[in-house]
Design a protein around this nucleic acid. Structure first.
Lengths: 199, 199
DNA sequence: TACATTTGCTTAACGGTGTTAAATTATTTA
DNA sequence: TAAATAATTTAACACCGTTAAGCAAATGTA
């Protein structure tokens, strides 16, 4: 009977509806306030039927993560295809990566574990800049230019911070990896950027 | 009466106990499973007592964050003091930053919003490497060495990834900042690393 | 058509969460 | 000793993820 297929198609559709509803809620209210009951509300069912489509809440997150990786790969691939030389390709691919992160903020957060519990109040925390200021100061001293413009120092600082914070984050979420390689990347990067500071 | 001070001292002590208990729980079970009742259990009180010392759960997290920043600043400062030349200082300071992140993993996670909801299952997700592989491939092609050793390519890849992921993370948690500066940092970094790829 | 079975979905419930208000106990003051 | 105040707990609310039981409609079978 064809009705079997029709029903199967409907089931697939509600599966998609669940994922879409979840993403919608997250876009509006953030990952913290995503709940099974809210998803159920949005798809006009009650919470328990979600468990017919996903093992649990984590199952939904996992599927969204998976889709995120697939979208990302797609964008990186098309970026590559638009160029010929490997250098141009590489640049375009990383820019595609960057753009993906902001086009699909919520997915990126989920994929790479970037999330802030309490963000607003953290801006009014003077202690947050203590270490930054110390480093800032030294960067200024290193620069051979006299009175380097503020935004130049700022850019150098952010470049440093990005690479080190990035390396740390990757290690914190992926647990360990290769300790020796990390040290080499870290030291290489620091030396490299210090040299590049007066480019 | 001196008892006033004694009582005040006791109150300060339980305040510290609350913070310590929270951190202990997080060290053992992660941020996700930190609860007011667990903290209360650990300090041998009931949950509502905590609200005499902190406005709410976020208040506890905020105070721990604050302490994290203070510790970090301390470690960076002493690292600086151990060297004379600004270049040596800068290197030592970033290494201190790095070491802080791993010595106080939980605090770092809290301070910079690095947390993974579902980490174990994510390892067995082949889609997670689709984009990585594409980029890997191109990096290999760029390298002038014939048959570059695996771990060298890997290091280059991680260097790229770190700086871009770091920059993205910082922007995702700090919301925006300077869009134009970001683009410059991004492009500079990419160009710089591509050049540095064949150092 | 009449009955039995399966399916789709909901209601109810369990143990957990953050948080608040009321009740209770202990301590200090008069 | 009685009254007032402080310290602490119990009870409750609304929410959470999740599971089991119940119900009602659709389906299969005689």
């Amino acid at each position: 009977m064809g009705s079997k297929e029709r029903i199967a198609r409907l089931k697939d559709e509600t599966r998609l509806n669940i994922l879409d509803a979840a993403l919608d809620i997250v876009k509006d209210e953030g990952w913290q306030s995503l709940s099974m009951r809210k998803i159920a509300d949005k798809i006009e069912y009650t919470a328990p039927i979600i468990y017919e489509y996903f093992a649990n809440k984590e199952g939904i997150l996992l599927e969204l993560t998976r889709r995120g990786y697939i979208i990302l790969a797609g964008e990186v691939r098309t970026a590559k295809q638009l160029h010929e030389s490997p250098a141009d390709q590489l640049e375009a691919m990383w820019i595609a990566y960057w753009n993906f992160a902001f086009k699909y903020k919520e997915l990126y957060r989920l994929m790479y574990g970037v999330d802030m519990n309490c963000c607003e109040l953290k801006k009014s925390m003077p202690e947050a800049e203590l270490a930054d200021d110390l480093i800032y100061e030294v960067i200024e001293k290193i620069m051979t230019v006299d009175n380097p413009p503020e935004d130049l120092v700022c850019r150098k600082f952010y470049t440093f911070w990005s690479i080190i914070h990035g390396l740390i984050s990757i290690n914190l979420v992926n647990k360990g990896r290769n300790e020796e390689m990390n040290q080499r990347i870290l030291k290489d990067a620091i030396k490299g950027i210090i040299k590049y500071i007066n480019d």
